[in-house]
Simulated assay, not measured.
Amino acid sequence: MEALTTSTLAVAIAEIGDKTQLLALVLACRYQKPLLIAAGILLATVINHALAGTVGVWLQSWLDPDWLRWLLAASFFVMAAWMMIPDKADDTDSRFYRLGPFMATFILFFIAEIGDKTQIATTLLAARFVDDFWWVVAGTTLGMMAANLPVVLAGHKGSGRIPMHWVHGISALIFLVLGITTLWWPL
């Protein structure tokens, strides 16, 4: 259960203000089809995070446990620092828009998640909680949906009301704690 709650919390907070959340906002404003957009986000996230988690499990099985512990801790510390850098929306003009709300969301979200903070976090969390792979994927997906569904449902009306420096600070703190606990308790 720790893997599920940690993964959900880490990704939900890390996603706030992230480029994929900004993409969800753009898609919501463009299409006004929240169910199709949410379904596209869900499918893209499950596939992307399952692949990212698989890489994390592979890293865990490939590396010596002591090396892995230090690598994970260092990666969590880097993620903590990275969280302090806010994302900006990418160019919103896309040829994928003509594919409709579901396919455009699925493709754009999947591509935008590649190398994104939340995808890297999923890889690290899966390596940390290797025996709970599916709980990590479920948690990161739940966190992604928890952060993006309100944006999709509210469209552009609620954006800008959350103090982003607090969100980034809390995200950084979570990854800092993950790094410390990874060093403190062996895998």
Rank of each mutant, 00 (worst) to 15 (best):
Val55His: 00
Val26Asn: 09
Val57Cys: 06
Ala3Thr: 00
Ala74Cys: 07
Ala74Arg: 02
Val26Trp: 00
Gln21Tyr: 05
Met145Ser: 06
Ala52Met: 12
Leu71His: 03
Leu108Arg: 05
Gln21Val: 10
Ser159Asn: 14
Lys33Phe: 00
Gly169Ser: 12
Gln119Thr: 13
Thr140Cys: 15
Pro150Arg: 05
Leu25Ile: 09
Met145Ile: 09
Phe110Met: 11
Met1Ser: 15
Asp90Ala: 08
Thr123Ala: 09
Arg95Pro: 08
Trp82Asn: 03
Ala52Gln: 07
Val152Ala: 08
Arg128Glu: 04
Cys29His: 08
Ala81Tyr: 15
Met164Gln: 13
Ile85Phe: 07
His49Lys: 08
Asp131His: 14
Ala28Phe: 01
Thr92His: 12
Arg161Asp: 12
Ile114Pro: 07
Thr6Gln: 03
Ala74Ser: 10
Ile47Trp: 02
Ile13Pro: 02
Leu176Pro: 10
Asp66Phe: 00
Leu124Cys: 02
Leu99Tyr: 15
Asp66Thr: 08
Val151Gly: 07
Gly40Ser: 06
Met144Ser: 15
Leu153Phe: 15
Tyr31Val: 05
Pro34Ile: 09
Arg128Gln: 09
Arg98Ser: 11
Asn148Ser: 15
Leu142Cys: 14
Thr122Lys: 01
Glu2Trp: 04
Ile37Val: 15
Val130Ile: 10
Thr118Asn: 06
Asp18Ser: 11
Pro163Ile: 12
Arg30Thr: 11
Ala24Cys: 11
Met145Leu: 15
Ala12Asp: 02
